[in-house]
Simulated assay, not measured.
Amino acid sequence: MSATSVFPEFEVVPAVDVQDGEVVQLVQGERGTEKRYGEPVEAAERWIDAGARSLHLVDLDGAFEGERRNAEAIDAVVDAVSVPTQLGGGIRTADDAIDLLERGVDRVILGTAAVETPEIVGEISEEHPESVVVSLDAKEGEVVVEGWTEGAGVSPAEAAERYEDLGAAAILFTNVDVEGRLEGVDPDPVRDLVEATSIPIVASGGVATLDDVRTLEEAGAAAVVVGSALYEGNFTLEEAQAAVGND
């Protein structure tokens, strides 16, 4: 993967997923499986102190319910940090996305909205270039939406090509089959996406070891989002960065 202005080099991005105002991690995106990790600003500052170059923020309640539910908690994170942030969950309109970008979020992540109204990607990108990351979450090779509860009838590779043409800055690919289970990654879908599009692929889901981080880099991903493995102490952010030569 060539360097881009979005991810100039391979990056390990800590996740700050927020539910009911707290940082949580879910198993395979299912409510009721969450493990809690405290206050969002504290978590964000912890990762920045550890060397994070950017943060991945998600309003999980927003992802499930279709509108932002943790705006106050996430706004507090954006206000508190100086590194770039990308935010997803409950962003359903171009106006919502543009408002977030103008308030300090660096990139918005669109999932359901991009699937249901693809032109929204171009509308936002025209006003804010390189600001839209399209989230392609997949179960058994099919893109899923509405908090991972409904199939969209298209493969991630087919969808990625479409969004590249519409101006997406990157694709966030979450393999729901392995998400949150700490059982390792499947690099094949990532390779397929890298081959299907020239924009950066950000991989997410299943990272349990430093070998998983290396595997995703070798598969061609431009970055990897890591949640449970960092929160559970499987490895440190510093170790992950060193594993891919970013120490």
Rank of each mutant, 00 (worst) to 15 (best):
E142V: 13
E146T: 14
E140D: 12
G88K: 14
D106Q: 04
E102M: 07
E126L: 06
A114R: 07
A138M: 10
D106G: 13
G104P: 12
E116D: 12
R92W: 05
I98G: 08
I120V: 15
L101P: 13
S125K: 12
T149G: 14
T93V: 06
E140W: 00
D96Y: 00
V143F: 02
V108C: 00
T117N: 09
I120E: 09
E123G: 11
V108K: 04
E123W: 15
A114Y: 03
P129I: 07
E130H: 13
T85N: 07
G111L: 11
A138G: 01
R107D: 02
V143M: 06
G141H: 10
T112S: 09
G147P: 12
T112P: 10
R103Y: 07
G122W: 03
I98E: 08
E102N: 12
I124C: 04
R103H: 13
E123N: 11
I91D: 03
V105C: 03
G111I: 15
E119K: 00
A94T: 02
T117V: 09
I109E: 06
L101N: 15
E150R: 15
A94S: 13
I98C: 10
E126K: 14
V108Y: 00
T112V: 06
E130N: 13
A94G: 04
E150I: 13
K139W: 08
G88N: 13
E116L: 07
A80K: 07
G141I: 06
E102R: 14
G89V: 14
G90W: 15
L100N: 14
L110F: 06
T93A: 01
H128K: 10
A76V: 10
A94Q: 02
